[in-house]
C-alpha cells in the first residue's frame, strides 16, 4: 500500500487582492506529527496563506488538498471535522458565554438527522467540551461573557474551541500574542502534545523563540514566496534570519522551561 496522503498539502498556490499579487508558487505539505511554524516580515502573506489553507479565501491558482481530497470538494460538515482554526483575536457581535462559544466546535459533529440542525449537544459532546475547558483552565470562566474577558483569556477560549473540535489539522494565527509567558508555555505545550498524538498544525507567528522551542519545521516567507523550509536547527541561524527580516539576530540562549513554578 502506498503512503497515506499528507494531512494538508498546498500545490502551487497563487493569490492576489485586486491584481496585486500576494502569494505566488506556494508549495507546502504538512504531515501528522508536524508543527510547522510560518514566519516572515509583516505583509509577506502569512495570514493570507492561512486563510487559503482553511478555505476562507479561494486561491486564484493551485489547490489545497486535505487528506488527499481537494478542499473545495469537501462538504461544510467534513471541512469542520477536518480543519480547526485559532484566530489571533475575534469580535463577537453578541454576548455569548464562553461555554457557548466552545460548544460551537461540536456543530460539525452533530448527528445527521433532520432535526439535528437545532444543535442539541450529545452527551459525549458535553464531555469533550468540559475536558477542553479544563485543559485550558477556563472551567471557572465558562459562564462569563466572552467580551468581559482579557485579551489573553479570549485567546484561550479560541484555543479551547479548536481543541474541542477534535480535528486532525489545526491552523493557528498568532494564538499567543496577548498571553503572559506562563499561558504561552501552557498553550504551546498543549499544542506540542496534541501534535505528537498525531495532529498536524500550521502556526503563524513572529516569535522566533516559539519556532525554536516548539516547532518541528520552520518556513520563512518573504514577499509572497517561501524562501526556506527547514528544521528549526537549520533555519534559525544568523544567515536565514538576516535574509528574511533584514536584522542581525543575537542568540542569548534563553529558553522557557515547561515546568510551572
Amino acid at each position: 500500500m502506498a503512503d497515506p496522503a499528507p494531512l494538508l498539502c498546498a500545490r502551487d498556490i497563487g493569490f492576489g487582492y485586486d491584481r496585486q499579487p500576494v502569494l505566488a508558487g506556494i508549495n507546502l505539505t504538512v504531515n501528522a506529527g508536524e508543527l510547522v511554524c510560518i514566519l516572515g516580515p509583516n505583509g509577506c502573506g502569512k495570514t493570507t496563506l492561512l486563510k487559503i489553507l482553511l478555505g476562507a479565501l479561494q486561491p486564484q491558482q493551485g489547490e489545497v488538498m486535505v487528506q488527499g481530497r481537494p478542499l473545495t470538494q469537501l462538504s461544510a460538515r467534513v471541512r469542520g471535522q477536518t480543519l480547526s482554526y485559532v484566530p489571533q483575536d475575534t469580535d463577537v457581535a453578541f454576548t455569548y458565554p464562553v461555554h457557548a462559544l466552545v460548544a460551537m466546535a461540536r456543530w460539525p459533529w452533530r448527528p445527521d438527522t433532520w432535526w439535528s440542525d437545532w444543535g442539541m449537544l450529545q452527551t459525549q459532546d458535553e464531555a469533550i467540551i468540559t475536558e477542553a475547558l479544563q485543559q485550558t483552565h477556563l472551567d471557572t470562566l465558562a459562564r462569563r461573557s466572552f467580551q468581559t474577558l482579557s485579551g489573553g483569556e479570549q485567546q484561550r477560549v479560541l484555543w479551547a474551541r479548536a481543541v474541542a473540535q477534535t480535528t486532525p489539522v489545526m491552523l493557528l494565527d498568532e494564538p499567543v500574542s496577548n498571553m503572559d509567558p506562563k499561558q504561552q508555555v501552557h498553550l504551546l505545550d498543549g499544542l506540542q502534545h496534541w501534535v505528537r498524538a498525531g495532529g498536524a498544525a500550521c502556526l503563524v507567528c513572529h516569535d522566533l523563540n516559539i519556532a525554536a522551542n516548539w516547532g518541528t519545521r520552520v518556513i520563512f516567507m518573504q514577499a509572497g514566496r517561501i524562501i526556506l523550509d527547514a528544521p528549526p536547527a537549520v533555519a534559525l541561524c544568523e544567515a536565514p534570519i538576516a535574509a528574511t527580516y533584514g536584522v542581525k539576530p543575537t542568540f542569548s540562549g534563553i529558553t522557557f522551561t515547561t515546568e510551572e513554578s
Partner: peptide, 24 residues
C-alpha cells in the same frame, strides 16, 4: 427555526464560521 442552530455560528467572523461546519 429548522436552521436556527447554524445562525449562532453565522454571527461569528467569516473565517471562523468557515471551519465550524456551516455553509456560510
Amino acid at each position: 427555526l429548522r436552521f436556527a442552530g447554524a445562525f449562532n455560528i453565522a454571527t461569528l467572523r467569516s473565517s471562523e464560521a468557515t471551519t465550524l461546519g456551516i455553509n456560510l
